[in-house]
Structure formats: structure tokens, C-alpha cells
Amino acid sequence: MNGFHWDWAFMWEVFPIILSAAKVTLLATLLGSIFAIVMGLVFALLRRNSSKTIRLSVYWVVEFIRSTPLLVQIFFLYYVMPEFGISMSPLVTGVFALGLHYGAYLSEVFRSGIDGIEKGQWEAARALNLSKLDTYKDIVLPQAIRPMIPATGNYIIAMFKETPQLSAITLLEMLQMAKIIGSENFRYLEPFTLVGVMYLVFSLLAAFGIHQLERRFPKEGFSLK
């Protein structure tokens, strides 16, 4: 093997192809985050349900999702759901798997964020005779969001870094693309390194973005319309 030199020409040939696959990676991350935030909120609110049975079962569901591998969850959704008549494309499967997995993590963030709201705020809302929905929408969430930004952002970055696992169900994201290029050209060095660098750059950018978002966010909260 005399392949241990870095082939710039090959890299430049590969670069645009990987970049186009990055769109798939980013799309999966974006949709996955939205779904994760929704699931996280659902789990968090169910953990505050008045029924102890519901609270306890949601606790164990979250615990179960968090302590089993994402890859197996991806396989489960991809291979087992069709048995129940639900067939999903690799992308949709990926979005659901990422969303569920990280929704479980985010529910803890949201839960402690909501718990962080002083008791007085709840009492004031009750005194104003606000409905439960209005209390969350107008009082609790606007104040809870800022402190939740850093942790939420970190989990979304973590999710982004787990998207390569979707290559296992043939989603043509960056890693899968790199693998195909590598096996066709018998050269893995440039494609894999390129993908690694892309992840590094994207996650550093995202970390910076989250920091900015947190800084810009009004300290006194904001109103949800």
C-alpha cells in the first residue's frame, strides 16, 4: 500500500459529493431536533401529570430509551415497524429514532427547567385564574427557556454527531457517501477525513451559535404569541 500520502486532487474531487450529502445530514438533524423538542416537552409534561401511574410509566419509558443504543432503536424502527404495517423511508426512520432518543434526554432538561420556576409564579398564575395551558404558555415557558438553551443545544449537537449511524439503514448521508466513495476507489483516507473535518467544523459552529443565541436571549424571558 502506498496510499499514505494525502491526495489533494482526489480530495477536491470528493469534496463536492460529500458536501451534497451534508444536506441530508443537516436535514435529518433539523427534523430530528424538532421532533426531539416536541417529544421532550410531551415527556416532561407527562412527568408532571397528576396520575402516579402515568408519571412512573413515562419515567421508565424515558429511562429505557436513554439506556439503550440509538443504533438498535434505528434498527427496531426500520425492521420491526413494517411488521405493524408502518413502513418508513430511511430518512423518516432516522428522524423518528433521533427524535425519540434525544426527546428522552431533552425531557430531563425541560423538566428541571420547569421545576426551576419559582413556586410564587405558579401561585400568581393561579391567583389570576389562568388556565393550565395559559399558565405554561404565558408564564412558565417564557421564563424557563433561556436557562434551557445551553443543555438543549448540547444535546442537538450530540444528535448531529450520531447521524452517521443512519448509514446503517442506507441513508445517503455524509458517512455513507464517504464509505461508497472509499470502497469504489479503494481509498478511505480522504473521504473519511473529510467527513470528520466536516463534523468538527459544524459542531464548533453550532456551539458558537448556541452561545450567541443564549447571549441574545432576553433575560426577562419573552412572550409566546
Binding site: M1, G3, F4, K161, E162, T163, P164, Q165, S167, L175, K179, G182, R187, Y188, L189, F192, T193, V195, G196, V197, Y199, L200, S203, L204
Partner: peptide
């Protein structure tokens, strides 16, 4: 480096790329 790139890529890199370095 190890926190910024993803675990699967690190695994592939070590398994598939290191052989190119002998």
C-alpha cells in the same frame, strides 16, 4: 478532536484509514 467528531467516524477512521499508514 474526539468530542467534536463523531464516534462512528473515529471508529471507521481507525479501522479503515490507519491501514493506509501501514
Amino acid at each position: 478532536f474526539f468530542r467534536g467528531t463523531s464516534a462512528l467516524i473515529q471508529l471507521y477512521w481507525i479501522y479503515f484509514v490507519l491501514p493506509f499508514f501501514g
